[in-house]
Design a protein around this nucleic acid. Structure first.
Length: 390
DNA sequence: TCTGGGGTCCTAGGACCC
DNA sequence: TCTGGGGTCCTAGGACCC
């Protein structure tokens, strides 16, 4: 007989707002929203006192204030949230090593081999009680035989809910849910699915025209249908989030940027932040990309891959400037972004660059020369044949 | 409701190599 | 002379999540 896995999905409710409440309990009964700017932009989170008024996360501040005039807007305190998040995961790791952080405020646990004689529901109660009493953090917990069902289950009762979703509950508890509540189906795909008569997760599970579905869901069609049917074999992988794939920095400019010079200054700021964070994470990048959004919301990006990994500001800024020149149009700019990807640990970088001559690290100036040389060697090759001129 | 900023993953075409 | 098929990397864009 096949043994069912026991997967928990644990979600910190209204996390940023809950952190603020934990620090200052007086906030608990007062509606609060977390937003960088107190009169524009969007809320990253609202506490439950604010949600009573119809305020939600991702709502813009103006609308939130309209619905809830006495809402208090608090600027985010990321180091506080990171600290609380660390406590959360440290505590969870005392139950199993099969713990996969999914983001700053949620994680999956595979407790199949760690339960002994204890009932899963009792473990969930213990976890929820401890996090609430010791750290003042409310969590919702989903318990299921796989990660998709656990994720959907933790969403069913908030805040401070515990929901068990077994295979045999799927048709009754999962299938009636609207298709937009399915994890992985977003607002672009929903209209497509509704067009072919799929309104609920059950409709997707029982849809037989896989060819039609493939037009909208591509290679992920089978995976989505299986999930809707309640099947998901994806393992809980503690190392999934260990490797960083990209480090970026972007900003929207409320008053818009109107000329090249100011855009250049802004890009320089963004690039310095990216370089700083590359250094902090001891990473070097091979690919640099620049993203521009104009006032009409048209958006373009360009990227360039080096022959060697680098984290040198001079090189990265040089590439950023080249890429931006190709993207620049005489239209007001609403957003600029710089991102570094194709990352490698810095220690590997030294190995690569010193492999030719000696084991001693190459002096900085020489390293820069080396990489610039490689740009000159492959810049025209990649870009000239697309009609670009350096 | 006119829309942050951090990311991940996917797709599709093209270059290039074997 | 014309032409297969697989694999990998690069590039631009897009969908989605928190």
């Amino acid at each position: 007989m096949k043994k069912y896995r026991i997967i928990f999905h644990i979600d910190l409710n209204a996390f940023y707002a809950s952190c603020e409440e934990a620090e200052d309990p007086r906030l608990k009964n007062h509606p609060i929203g977390i937003a960088k700017n107190s009169d524009r932009g969007i809320l990253t989170t609202a506490n439950y006192a604010a949600r009573k008024y119809g305020v939600t996360s991702a709502m813009n501040v103006y609308e939130a204030k309209k619905r809830c005039p006495n809402i208090k807007i608090i600027p985010p305190n990321f180091s506080l949230y990171e600290e609380k998040s660390r406590l959360f995961f440290d505590y969870l790791s005392t139950f199993t090593q099969k713990l996969e952080p999914a983001s700053i405020d949620e994680g999956y646990l595979d407790l199949t081999d760690d339960l002994a004689e204890t009932h899963p529901l009792d473990i969930a109660k213990t976890i929820q009680k401890h996090l609430w009493e010791v750290y003042h953090l409310p969590v919702s917990i989903g318990i299921a035989p796989n990660r998709f069902l656990a994720k959907m289950a933790s969403d069913m009762k908030k805040p401070l809910g515990i929901t068990v979703l077994r295979k045999r509950d799927v048709s009754e508890k999962l299938w009636p849910l609207p298709i937009e509540s399915m994890h992985g189906i977003g607002k672009k795909t929903v209209p497509d699915l509704k067009l072919i008569g799929i309104q609920t997760i059950g409709d997707l599970a029982n849809y037989t025209e896989l060819k039609t579905l493939r037009r909208f869901l591509g290679n992920q069609t089978e995976s989505f249908v299986n999930k809707a049917l309640g099947f998901d074999e994806t393992p809980i992988d503690p190392t999934r989030r260990d490797t960083i794939h990209s480090i970026g920095n972007s900003r929207t400019y409320e008053g818009f940027i109107h000329d090249y010079e100011n855009a250049f200054k802004a890009l320089d700021d963004l690039t310095q932040t990216v370089v700083h964070r590359l250094h902090k994470n001891e990473r070097a990048a091979k690919t640099i990309s620049v993203q521009v959004r104009f006032h009409d919301f048209t958006q373009h990006s360009k990227n360039f891959s080096l022959e060697y990994h680098t984290s040198e500001y001079e090189i990265i800024m040089g590439i950023v400037e080249d890429l931006f020149e190709q993207l620049y149009e005489t239209k007001p700019i609403h957003l600029l972004g710089v991102s570094a990807s194709n990352l490698e640990r810095e220690e590997h970088l030294f190995k690569q660059l010193t492999i030719f001559e000696s084991n001693a690290p190459m002096p900085k100036a020489e390293r820069i020369d080396k990489v610039l040389e490689s740009i000159n060697a492959n810049y025209p090759k990649n870009l000239l044949n697309k009609g670009f001129k350096k």
